[in-house]
Design a protein around this nucleic acid. Sequence first.
DNA 1: AGTCATACATGACCCTGGTCATATTTAAAG
DNA 2: CTTTAAATATGACCAGGGTCATGTATGACT
Lengths: 198, 198
Amino acid sequence: MSLREKKKIETKNRIFEVSGRLFKEKGFENTTVDEIAKEAGIAKGTFFNYFPTKEALLLYFGEQRDELIYNLIENETKRSIPAKEKITNLLVRLAESYEKDRELTKLLIFEYRRYIGYSGLRPDNSRSRRIIKILQDLLEEGMKNSEVKSHIEAKKAAEVLTAIYVHSLMMWVNADGDFSFSSDISGKIDLLFEGIGD
Amino acid sequence: MSLREKKKIETKNRIFEVSGRLFKEKGFENTTVDEIAKEAGIAKGTFFNYFPTKEALLLYFGEQRDELIYNLIENETKRSIPAKEKITNLLVRLAESYEKDRELTKLLIFEYRRYIGYSGLRPDNSRSRRIIKILQDLLEEGMKNSEVKSHIEAKKAAEVLTAIYVHSLMMWVNADGDFSFSSDISGKIDLLFEGIGD
DNA sequence: AGTCATACATGACCCTGGTCATATTTAAAG
DNA sequence: CTTTAAATATGACCAGGGTCATGTATGACT
């Protein structure tokens, strides 16, 4: 590893850490790129060598967290409990991981979407793709164990679960602890498993 | 109505119409407040007397459309067909109303979420509250007609339906006509009505 | 009709995200 | 060791959203 590579990694990390701190202190909008650069000890223009836009910091934050969480969670889904419980635990666990940095999480959820919406890029959307894949696998496993009806389309059901999760997460993040995510989403997953048609 | 009130309404409408046209032509980001103001025949600073931010145009656009659509749709739900079909028709109808202005819709969906996220207010959230209310009413009616299980919590089920709708709408808007919203959401509503647990 | 208060219009200015010509540092080649 | 190439750093500058001191138009009151 050359000096260049080493310094590059260090600088990027320093920018990332400084910005994370400032976002928590003052919020995303009230934090300027200029002050991030100053605190990180670089020129403002240099910032953009590392992150293409201010919002890209949020994406990076999301990526960093994802790597950590999904590995933990994928291990967890290997336990021998019914599919429904696994799914609920997974989604509750996911939500809990956001508790520590609630403000950043809120920003990530809302700004991330804005960024995608404006960029004109077809969102790779690997994040929700990944959740859907995990849920789909769990559902297919549940089919093998006769816990999930075998004729349903697992991908579609996984998309429904993802929709429930995302929507509930947004309500929860906004509610500032006014209700229990766990019992809220459990109730909704119950509805899906049991069905509401008479 | 004084001359002042009259001119105020006219100016606001003119700004709104001009901006709507420019957004379609060039996109939201590529349209500047300066050119909107010029085309509307006002000074740039005057624009902000009518709309607090550029993004507020999107919210206003959403409000205007809502008034139109919900009235049409509330009438439609009075027909005598099963609850499930009513719900599906409602959501498909809602989505179809966005077809004409797909790009604006995409922006509106994202911007609306951002607005909620940042408002710091407990979101009155009248938009999704309204959808949830309509869906809840439909579900309760379905309970009376033995089309929906009577022991379920209608509000929670309505929230699940809303989550499915919003998530599917975003996927559809992003997919640029790569799949049929109608059959996608019908399949998901089927899953919810039938249940996936074995 | 004249005066005063209020609402609205204006455009110069400010701030911030981002750009890019220029300078500096590091690594590779001879 | 010297030269060249590539990578990175810098800060002046630009564009666009938004602000606000100043000017103008309208309405209410006498």
